[in-house]
Nucleic acid binder design. Structure first.
Lengths: 347, 347
DNA sequence: TGCTATAAATGGAACGTTCCAATAAATCAA
DNA sequence: TTGATTTATTGGAACGTTCCATTTATAGCA
């Protein structure tokens, strides 16, 4: 085993024959130190196997270089992609993001936030767990630590949000389905305790109104935002007396589920029933049939969120503008025309 | 905005009319304090909006309550499942796991490890990035911080590993394919710079030997361990003069890729070509056709890894035994008999 | 009453950094 | 040479905790 007690700046100082202040300056890359001295110190640092104690440093320095990333469902590849975007910009800024998972549990979220705060994070990027109470971030705001939400927002808070244009995306997707001849569209998955749900469903309804689909011809099926939920939605929908011929799904996971359920019934997405997803995760393109989906530029949103956070930290403010990311519809195979309709546009 | 400077233990002491030592004891839940005093202090804590400074505490306390979890690919749902298992155990132990992603990049891994160390983690659970140099963990070991590897091991290090029985899993899967009548099995995906690759491929070869498949009738196709890699493997395999009729895939992602490529050619996994995956991720069961795969009890491995880590921390040792998790083959639809063979066992 | 034993609360040093103010050494101007 | 200026280096206080050694208050017992 190596060094009994861990080496400190003083051990380095002794080793290199300088004062601790000098070592500290070298550590910070100060130009005030004579180059030869600096290299001597650096050698000593290696020799004693020193590891910097950021806790001690933060005691004096006020702000740290770590930001916390609190995510409600690590299992969803969407968040992994988001995280990747953030990491790119944080890395360049010398900031280290620590990721914590709340598994959609507000109690766990509370604990995780507490821990991160105790650790002295410089800022927090949060995709809040479902059922988060409005007051959950009050203490953090009071402490002056900047927070930004991604993807989800809380009903009445003034914390900035970085999210895609959910309404617009849903409008685009729904218009696409209707233009392809579907007169009985459905909306699959999600539940009304999510703000995002209202945004996406709202877009769906707006497009239906605009293109003259009567309320009686639309079907809305709530459900889990997972593959399993998507399968259940499709079953429910096909069991109705006048089943839909197409569905906009709350997200891609739901869409994949719906497609699997179709397959189980011997039906094929795109020819027998049109399916459109939301998020355009990497898998959508490689699926078979390839999934038509609303692309939200996930990694781009992650980058944007990271930039907003860096800006807040730098300007020591706790306010920032919302950022609504542009979306686009990526048409693939899963959204064919209604086979019972004459209106299908060829393309 | 609330409090200008953040409240400390001294502010609480003043507020509650006690000494800082008393506050400290209350914070630690010591029974030495009179209950009424304790509640008075707790009220003061609330009132001043105090947040505990763990950095300062660690300066005296020597060991922290955070452990670092360093993962090579957050995008793989497998690791998310692993993380979930670990979190369960850590949460119960009052330990907070911080997750960091290395994106399979040894340089990034170096940075992440450095950061975690500076933060004063109590331990590290690592799934090393591909191409990690043997010396990468020397400094950490020297500092006496316990490390455990999950899933992957480094060629000659003595760091404990928690991983599934890869060899056995591959044997089981290969035997299954051969017993179903496939005399020309293939191994898809992975590359020889991974220790895991050799273990799984080794199992495949062992089973081939045992059941009398000559070397000339086996096909080994290296490739990325992703859907895309799996698609490529299948294409390569079918382009050979004597194409295989079945494949054991390095992991489920590769298997999904192979199945997609089959579909693109109008073939169906299970009837036209047998596919077996490895890891048995949640998706395997819901896929269509459902994927036969080697179940490794991912969450269980995560729990085990967490337990090993807690034990190491508690007993202040840096040594621990390897743990090789039991595996089992879950037979589903994707691994039907060779349709050109008479030997297929009915079941 | 005085004494000890127990319970409750406290002061102060220590942890490993940063950073200000001060010193020491080297250079320059006259 | 002397003083002023610049360049390198340094001591010491401070940051917010913990924990040991004390002190003070309370109770118990003869």
């Amino acid at each position: 085993m190596a060094s009994r007690a861990k080496a400190t700046i003083l051990d380095i100082a002794r080793e290199a024959g300088v004062s601790k202040s000098t070592v500290s300056l070298v550590l910070q890359g100060s130009g005030l130190i004579r180059p030869e001295t600096a290299t001597r110190v650096r050698k000593a640092i290696e020799d004693v196997g020193y590891v910097y104690n950021r806790g001690a440093a933060n005691l004096r320095k006020a702000h740290s270089n770590v930001i916390g990333m609190v995510i409600n469902d690590l299992t969803n590849p969407f968040f992994a992609e988001l995280a990747v975007g953030m990491e790119r910009v944080f890395q360049a800024a010398g900031v280290v993001p620590f990721i914590a998972n709340t598994a959609e549990n507000p109690v766990r979220q509370e604990e995780v936030l507490k821990s991160l705060m105790e650790q002295g994070v410089a800022g927090l990027i949060v995709s809040p767990a479902r059922g988060t109470t409005p007051g959950a971030f009050r203490r953090i705001e009071a402490a002056g630590v900047p927070i930004a939400f991604t993807m989800r927002r809380l009903p009445e808070s003034r914390i900035p949000v970085i999210a895609p244009d959910n309404h617009r995306g849903a409008v685009l997707a729904t218009e696409h389905l209707i233009r392809r001849g579907h007169r009985r569209p459905a909306f699959f998955g999600g539940s009304s305790d999510l703000v995002v749900y209202h945004q996406r469903l709202g877009g769906f309804l707006t497009a239906c109104e605009t293109l003259g689909i009567p309320a009686s011809d639309r079907l809305i099926v709530e459900g889990e935002t997972s593959r399993k939920g998507g399968m259940a939605c499709l079953e429910t929908a096909l069991a109705t007396t006048q089943p839909p011929t197409a569905a906009l799904c709350f997200n891609d996971a739901v869409a994949f589920g719906a497609m699997l359920a179709l397959r189980k019934r011997g039906l094929e997405a795109g020819t027998d029933f049109a399916v459109v997803g939301f998020d355009d995760v990497a898998e959508a393109e490689h699926y078979s049939p390839a999934l038509t989906s609303v692309a939200v530029d996930t990694a781009g949103l992650g980058e944007r969120a990271a930039h907003v956070m860096l800006k807040m930290i730098q300007s020591r403010t706790t306010r920032a503008e919302d950022h609504i990311g542009a979306v686009s519809l990526v048409v693939r195979e899963s959204s064919g025309p209604d086979r019972n309709s004459q209106l299908g546009d060829a393309a």
